[in-house]
């Protein structure tokens, strides 16, 4: 059975921590937690928290949608790579020659 997990993305002064809570259902909500004794890094079970938490409004996205969207963006770059497989950055002399050419047009 999946358990709820809390992934820290920020630790603020006064031991206030904020993170994404991923429910067993896969939904994600943003939460803050306070703790005077526990030092966190990465992912931990909610059952280890030492103090109460206060829910913030849930962010308007699902982790799944973010991942899907990111993959589409990467695919555009991947398509560019397949369309221009041997494309390369300018060499220094090419860059400098182009720069001088551009500058020659400006007052």
């Amino acid at each position: 059975m999946m358990s709820n997990t809390f992934r820290t993305f920020a630790t603020l002064p006064g031991f206030v921590m904020a993170g994404f809570l991923t429910h067993a259902s896969g939904a994600t909500t943003l939460r803050t937690e306070t703790s005077a004794s526990i030092s966190w890094k990465g992912e931990t079970s909610l059952s280890t928290l030492s103090s109460s938490s206060e829910d913030l409004p849930a962010p308007e996205f699902s982790a799944e949608a973010v991942v899907k969207s990111a993959l589409k963006g990467m695919s555009l770059a991947a398509l560019a790579k397949t369309a221009f497989p041997n494309s390369r950055p300018m060499e220094d002399w090419e860059k400098q020659a182009t720069h001088r050419f551009v500058l020659s047009h400006f007052r």
């Binding site: 695919s75 555009l76 991947a78």
Partner: peptide, 13 residues
Amino acid sequence: MDRELAARAAGVI
């Protein structure tokens, strides 16, 4: 990744 696969996943087309 071949062109067709990449194009189908690109989203902008």
